[in-house]
Lab assay of single mutants.
Amino acid sequence: GTVKVQGITIKVPNPDKAYKIAKKLAKKYNLTVTRKGNTIKVE
């Protein structure tokens, strides 16, 4: 899958794990995490 952070896309082998990490970071930096299948977008 991929993770998008402010325009940066990161390929990740485990979208579930990445999503959990993204959620933690999002809370810390007051961002929104959206997930569509293997693509995770943080904005």
Rank of each mutant, 00 (worst) to 15 (best):
I40W: 07
V5Y: 15
G1H: 07
Y19G: 00
A26K: 04
K24F: 14
P13N: 13
N38A: 05
K24V: 10
Q6D: 10
E43M: 11
G1W: 14
K41W: 15
A18Q: 01
A22W: 15
G7I: 13
V3S: 04
V33D: 00
V42I: 14
N30Y: 09
K36W: 10
I8F: 11
V3N: 05
G7Q: 06
N30I: 06
T9I: 13
I40Y: 05
I21T: 04
R35M: 07
K17Q: 12
K28P: 01
I8V: 09
P15V: 15
I40M: 03
T9M: 10
V12A: 04
I40R: 01
T2Q: 10
V5M: 10
E43I: 12
I8P: 01
K23T: 09
K17I: 13
T34Y: 05
R35D: 00
K27R: 11
N14C: 15
I10D: 02
T32R: 11
I21A: 06
Y19K: 03
T34N: 03
K28W: 15
L31R: 01
G1M: 11
K23G: 03
K11N: 07
K27P: 02
K27D: 04
P15Q: 03
V5H: 14
K23D: 01
K24W: 15
G7P: 04
K36Y: 10
R35G: 02
I40H: 04
T2S: 07
L25P: 00
N38G: 05
R35L: 07
T2M: 12
T32W: 10
K24P: 00
L31W: 11
T9F: 10
K11R: 13
E43F: 14
K17S: 10
Y29I: 03
T34L: 04
V42Q: 02
I21F: 13
Q6G: 15
T34H: 04
R35F: 05
K17F: 13
V5T: 05
E43R: 11
K24N: 07
I21K: 02
K4N: 08
T32Q: 09
P13R: 13
V12M: 07
K20P: 00
G37P: 01
T32Y: 09
V42P: 00
R35I: 07
V5I: 14
P13E: 09
A18P: 00
D16I: 08
K41G: 03
K4R: 10
K41E: 14
T32G: 02
N38W: 07
A22G: 04
I21L: 09
K11G: 07
V12K: 02
N14T: 04
V5D: 03
G7Y: 11
K36Q: 12
T2R: 08
L31E: 00
K11L: 13
K24C: 15
A26Y: 09
K11F: 14
P13A: 12
I10W: 05
N38F: 04
R35K: 07
K27E: 08
P13S: 13
K36S: 09
Y29N: 01
I40L: 07
Q6E: 08
T2V: 12
P13T: 12
N14Q: 03
Y29D: 00
K41M: 13
A18F: 13
R35T: 04
I10E: 01
V33Q: 01
T32C: 13
K20N: 09
T39K: 05
K17W: 14
K28D: 02
K24Y: 14
T39G: 03
V33K: 01
G1N: 06
R35Y: 06
K27T: 05
V3L: 12
T2Y: 14
G1P: 07
K17H: 08
K28G: 04
D16L: 11
T9R: 07
A26Q: 04
Y19D: 00
